[in-house]
Design a protein around this nucleic acid. Structure first.
Lengths: 299, 299
DNA sequence: ATTTTGTATTAATTTTTTTTATGCAATATA
DNA sequence: TATATTGCATAAAAAAAATTAATACAAAAT
């Protein structure tokens, strides 16, 4: 059998007090318990550590002295690890890996991290961006501890907490025939070509919007890039349906687009925090979650 | 309660196999035992380490991953300590602290260390010279592991092993009236002044020699230095009785001395290895002891 | 010689660890 | 859609380990 940390702690105490019984008292255990533990340690190492004197305590053998020095080192190391463990659980500092759905990232993460840094300056966030299914897989695999996602069709093992809802809108070029309308119905676009933001769960959501409105889009282009959707729309390749809306109506390549509300009743999309259902959040993750809630509550 | 090394080892295995049950098999323990150990570790740290998946093993939480990395480090450290412990017991290398009676040292230690180095090149000896009672105290206090001593009146707690015996002789200046005698009786020196090598146990031994011969020395000088005894004798301050005899008859200051056998029946003095009685020798100390025996057996 | 001191030993007890058996929830399979 | 399988958790029982109380023992102090 191998030695235990407890045995080492006992040994250190005995060496410090120069006496088994005094050490036992200070450790709040009985003298025989301590005696036995030391004897066991000596046996497991095959190395005598103490010289027993009668009626005058013990002294440490030369080999024991060398061993003791290193044993103290190990105990120090063990204490550090314990502290780390507690800190990983208790404190709001160190590293937090956050999964984030790639479309959401540029809209919210910059300000979010700013807020987070104000509340918890010692917390370092590392982002893991990806499509919804990637964010989800990372959460389940324990690669990330918490994620910022659209709450569409997520795995049952993930718990979500809604932060806000975003309404879908139609995006057209500023010179589109409907650009000046204050609202459009999806069926009014039935003959126009559509640019689809084609990401795992998103695509199903967009499809469901049309189904609910009794329409069927003609898909001209599919892309996974939000900005490419805007660019294509801006250059008149077709319209699109999106939920988020950048501050500027200019696309990267200078095109102009316009957002138009949808007339049909639509299902809004929930932006949410996701996390493994039955895993207690660390304080770090909880802090992130709180900051997110505050951020969206304040608009 | 604090965590244990065993729990850490278990955790590492589980993380490595990605499964509690597979790890349990590889550790030759039952799955519930492992399950419980991990749960206990998590509780003691207040930190969830694993995400349990149904029917598909476990994964490690992000915090768990950080903890795990350090835990591996600690286990490595613990193994090193175990190795050190075994080596301190088993191997003939590293450091050995040898107590040595100061009078004996210059006569034997240089060659002894040479022999020792030949047999055990990795063994480093550190000498702790002193009077007999100091050597003895160091042994009992565990400061030295083994000692080279005269076997006079040693503590009962020390075990000795005789290496050789040395006969006492009379030392006189080369121009002393008895210098040419082939042997002298101690009573023949009754009127001469004596130079006493005055060291704790030695002094009693010398006195006993005279008592046994029915004589009483007139002590003119006392000193703790062997060479000063010789010097004083060489300059005609008196005679002395000693057991060891350097190769040269010249003293440090150029005086000449002569050794004369003692006619009376004398008690020879035993040179011996001493060690704490009920302390098993380390291999290092045993090696030293063996080399000593061989050295004195070969003359 | 007697008491005191401090460790070792023994047997009994308590605590902890481990096992066997079973439950439960999700996944894989038919 | 039901059924079997997988893999972790839980419960009760058993085994092992740690601890204690009582005592023996040897040396030191008185």
């Amino acid at each position: 059998m191998q030695y235990t940390l407890k045995q080492l702690r006992y040994l250190v105490a005995v060496a410090e007090y120069g006496s088994v019984s005094v050490a036992a008292r200070s450790l709040f255990i009985s003298q025989p318990a301590l005696s036995a533990a030391i004897a066991q340690l000596e046996n497991s190492l095959g190395l005598p550590l103490l010289i027993r004197h009668h009626a005058r305590g013990i002294s440490v053998t030369p080999a024991g002295r060398q061993f003791l020095a290193r044993a103290r080192g190990l105990l120090g190391h063990a204490n550090e690890l314990e502290l780390l463990g507690r800190e990983l659980g208790d404190s709001v500092r160190g590293e937090l890996i956050v999964g984030c759905f790639m479309t959401l990232t540029p809209f919210f993460v910059p300000k979010l991290l700013k807020n987070l840094h104000q509340s918890h300056p010692e917390l370092r966030v590392q982002l893991a961006e990806g499509a919804l299914d990637q964010v989800q897989a990372a959460l389940l695999a324990g690669e990330t501890e918490i994620g910022l996602v659209y709450d569409i069709d997520l795995d049952h093992q993930l718990a979500t907490e809604e932060l806000t809802r975003v309404r879908p809108h139609v995006l057209v070029a500023s010179n589109h025939r409907l650009a000046t309308h204050s609202a459009v119905s999806l069926s009014a676009l039935a003959t126009d070509p559509m640019i689809l933001l084609d990401l795992p769960h998103s695509r199903d959501y967009f499809r469901s919007l049309f189904l609910d409105a009794g329409a069927e889009p003609i898909i001209r282009h599919r892309t996974q890039s939000f900005e490419l959707v805007r660019g294509l729309v801006g250059q008149g390749h077709g319209y699109s349906v999106l939920n988020l809306q950048p501050h500027s109506n200019r696309t990267y390549d200078g095109g102009r687009v316009r957002c138009i509300p949808i007339e049909d009743p639509t299902t809004d999309l929930a932006i949410a925090i996701a996390r493994p259902r039955d895993l207690q959040l660390t304080h770090r993750a909880a802090a992130f979650s709180t900051v997110c809630r505050r951020f969206f509550a304040d608009g």
